[in-house]
Design a protein around this nucleic acid. Structure first.
Lengths: 140, 140
DNA sequence: TGTGTACTTGCACCATAATGCAAGTATTGG
DNA sequence: CCAATACTTGCATTATGGTGCAAGTACACA
């Protein structure tokens, strides 16, 4: 009885754009969750990124000691970086005896990136983006 | 005379995986360019990310003053953050009189994220990822 | 139980970066 | 030309983060 008529009211569904940035900030969007500073914080350091690239290219789980031979920083630094990447969900870790193996969580990472890309496209207004993008699911 | 025979040698085509992370680091990959710390550095600060989300949800170009009403930091801080996001290619800017408008570069950003996601998937070994992923174009 | 290996943690140091305030620049309108 | 607007920049402060060294913990093996 409340939401039956679906054409006369202009402001229904697909939640129109907020008029001002201030109002926009108040709106909840998938973006808010996906645009997670903590993930990017993990990826914003050159050393950390090189370790990630190293592990990705290697394609298998590697020990801290092995990875440490990729770059010039101290092993303790590598240990901390890998741990940070794991905290961010970018790497997974397994302990086997006294050796810790880190591996890239490929699908977890790429899925997250694609979800973010989709959420961004969904915010793209009207015809400003390619076909299939900007289909309005931006603002809650 | 050195590299003629192409079948007896086991190491041909589709560049097999490096044995160690150390060797992996030496290999060039699309990942190396796409995994750009500078982009992530732009996105690793909470205030900056909230400004980006604000602009994205708003969907149009906004002035610095408008955007500054989204959050509690000083306008000068907002100005610097927006300028940083523009430097990273995340935002575009237009000056109109004394007003500067920033807008999200939607497709530029989402394309970059998807390209990275693809490059990551390409590094995923064998059947470890979903179908269509991990098709080996990882190591140069 | 002791020794060596593999990694982690505490600590101090240094570099970078975020922030606010105040002053400066650019542009518009009277 | 002067005043107001819209932003940017310089500067000092504070916070955060990366790094190396040294010490600590966890585990395996003899």
């Amino acid at each position: 009885m409340v939401q039956v008529h679906k054409r006369s009211a202009p402001a229904r569904k697909a939640a129109r754009r907020p008029a001002t940035p201030r109002q926009a900030a108040a709106r909840k969007s998938p973006l808010d969750a996906l645009l997670d500073p903590d993930l990017f914080k993990a990826l914003c350091d050159p050393t950390r990124v090189s370790l990630l690239a190293c592990l990705a290219k290697c394609g298998r789980a590697c020990s801290v000691g092995e990875v440490a031979e990729c770059c010039r920083v101290d092993l303790s630094v590598v240990s901390r970086h890998l741990s940070q990447l794991a905290d961010a969900g970018v790497l997974g870790s397994t302990k086997q005896g006294r050796t810790v193996f880190y591996r890239v969580r490929f699908t977890g990472l790429s899925d997250k990136l694609r979800a973010l890309a989709d959420a961004i496209d969904a915010c793209c207004p009207d015809g400003a983006c390619g076909e299939g993008r900007g289909k309005g699911g931006c603002c809650g």
